[in-house]
Design a protein around this nucleic acid. Structure first.
Length: 301
DNA sequence: ATCCAGGATGTAT
DNA sequence: ATACATCATGGA
């Protein structure tokens, strides 16, 4: 299966979308580390038990794709391309100078829609971890439990299915350096295998109900729940409050910050930016403050 | 050496 | 409800 999706300028910057830190489910076909990749790279992930490869011939241009088999999921839906970024999403969240600058500097970042299982597992690995380190852990899980697929002479690693993960154990995960998150992953796999929680059920719920349901999983708190809701299940009203978002809110939106109250703060941001695309606002803000932090700091005279 | 990272849990108040 | 210690590992 293959094809191309025509895109207007500014609708998608694939590299930034891959590298802004929202997803741990993609890698490059060439083997270049995700965060070292540039516009010449092709990216792949697991969809419907197949491998999907996507790339842009020109940065920000049309999106080409190819898969190892037929997919039930559309490529458009994986990047939420049905939502016009320039004409609808960005104008709606550009409420002030801060967000306008974030949007202007990072044109083309999309909200990814990863598969539920890999998204959940990767964010279970995330507490108190640096982003590149989380990516390393997810890659080691793929290599340990996932199948290898062949694509044009490349050996690509599939994210393991729930069945493939059923052999998982806390001890093995600790050997893979997940630390205290090991029991989170083991417990989540067991819960999903039992069928107590499943994706279809979550997607039929309203945001708050789905949020609470996800938190039934051991290791899922407010923040991880919002990440899974936003980056996998399509709840774009989710506004994950991580350390970066909290920092950004305290410095740019102090009137919306409620000390030690996750839901009050998140609700304030949701109301301010609009529930429809609050998750986009979070992602642009998140990337904005991170790129400022990582840039060389100006030397005071 | 000390601090901190896309936080969450358990326990005590 | 709210405060606080604890949790693994690695990089700065």
């Amino acid at each position: 299966m293959q094809g191309v999706i025509e895109l207007s300028p500014g609708e998608l910057d694939l590299v930034k979308t891959m590298q802004c830190g929202q997803t741990f489910c993609w890698n490059t076909v060439s083997g270049t580390p995700l965060y070292d990749a540039d516009a010449t790279n092709r990216f792949y992930t697991t969809v419907d038990n197949e491998i999907l490869i996507v790339w842009q011939e020109d940065r920000g241009g049309d999106l080409y794709y190819e898969a190892t088999g037929e997919l039930d999921t559309s490529v458009e839906s994986l990047f939420r391309l049905h939502e016009p970024l320039q004409d609808e999403v960005l104008p709606q969240i550009s409420k002030d100078d801060v967000m306008e600058e974030a949007v202007n500097q990072h044109q083309g970042i999309r909200i990814i829609q990863d598969e539920f299982l890999p998204c959940l597992i990767s964010y279970l690995c995330s507490p108190q971890m640096r982003i590149p380190r989380i990516k390393e852990l997810v890659n080691s899980i793929m290599e340990e439990y996932g199948a290898t697929m062949e694509y044009k002479g490349h050996q690509l690693q599939r994210f393991p299915s729930l069945y493939e993960l059923s052999n998982i154990s806390e001890r093995k995960l600790r050997r893979m350096k997940l630390g205290y998150r090991s029991k989170y992953v083991e417990s989540a796999v067991n819960t999903l295998i039992k069928g107590d929680i499943n994706q279809d059920q979550l997607q039929d719920m309203d945001y708050r109900t789905a949020h609470n349901e996800l938190k039934e999983l051991h290791g899922v708190g407010d923040k991880v729940a919002d990440c899974v809701l936003l980056f996998s299940l399509g709840f774009t009203e989710a506004f994950p409050l991580d350390t970066w978002a909290q920092q950004a809110i305290q410095s740019y939106y102090p009137e919306h910050h409620v000390e030690d109250d996750y839901h009050a703060t998140a609700e304030n941001m949701r109301n301010y930016f609009g529930a429809d695309y609050a998750g986009y606002a979070q992602e642009y803000l998140f990337h904005h403050v991170r790129s400022q932090e990582q840039a060389p700091q100006p030397v005071p005279a």
